[in-house]
Write a protein that binds this DNA or RNA. Structure first.
Lengths: 143, 143
DNA sequence: TGGATTTCCATAGGGTCCCTATGTAACGTG
DNA sequence: CACGTTACATAGGGACCCTATGGAAATCCA
């Protein structure tokens, strides 16, 4: 496996990821808010800054996203009684329901396409694991 | 592998893809035009509508992207002498050079992250193949 | 105790990417 | 030539994201 191949693969990975995101945005839901719902579902209530770090976006971006989600009734913002700076963002039942619906939609869409290509869910799991690894280490370092 | 798992995976795939795209846009350089350069590199000169179909975006979007690329000097638009409606979009040397540079950057970034996770390029290739399959069949007629 | 600093969130302003709706010009056909 | 079709461009708007900046609460420290 040569370096040229790796260049191709890295570039291709980004290209395909971009197309996937666009397709989802057009046909299904707003991914930005769903990412936040997913984070809250996995990790429980969090502050805006924690969410921004977890989603690796800027704090103002997350701030705006949360505001949108509040308007939609999918999350609530409550004050932390011990630290008035912190805003605890938590899922509502409606938010949980919406997340479940989106996941069903995505799952079905992925399953449909898999069926046409003799792909097993394990293959998708492997792809997810690779993406996670590629994204995981925002490790800075000299050199 | 249950349906619940598949829902999780489909959703997770989209979430990770979105984060990847955002990370690339912020840290590296990926004006959506690179996708077009990649298409032209793979398939040779094409018209705007063909490019839009290949990238699965709308024709006006591709029209604007191509205009941007022309301004950057990475592609040229030339009239087809046989059909004055068709614009042949072709890579310039500068466009080819830019594409090569972007690919090197992506390849290096991916390689760095892989090294931290005991991943082989073959794993990335597998992930790319899965993404391609997930995107490929927008459920159209026979080929 | 009274700054100084830090932490957390919000707003302002701007950019990119993408969409639908709607032209306009050139082709083909009867 | 009228007619529908094809290929591209423009107009208008929305979603998402960024940096810069501001304000308020908590914490640190002489």
């Amino acid at each position: 496996m040569s370096d040229d191949d790796l260049e191709e693969l890295g570039s291709e990975l980004v290209v395909l990821a971009a197309r996937l995101v666009r397709a989802v945005r057009r046909d299904l839901d707003q991914p930005a808010g769903v990412r936040v719902l997913s984070l809250l579902d996995q990790h429980g209530p969090r502050g805006v800054s924690e969410l921004a770090a977890a989603d690796s976006c800027s704090q103002p971006t997350m701030s705006g996203t949360v505001t949108t989600l509040v308007d939609l009734g999918w999350v609530t913002k409550t004050q932390d009684p011990r630290d008035a700076r912190v805003l605890r963002v938590g899922l509502t039942d409606a938010g949980r329901a919406h997340l479940a619906a989106v996941r069903r939609t995505h799952g079905r869409a992925v399953a449909d396409r898999l069926a046409a290509h003799d792909r097993s869910p394990a293959d998708v799991a492997a792809a997810v694991a690779v993406l996670r690894d590629v994204l995981d280490p925002p490790q800075e370092g000299p050199r």
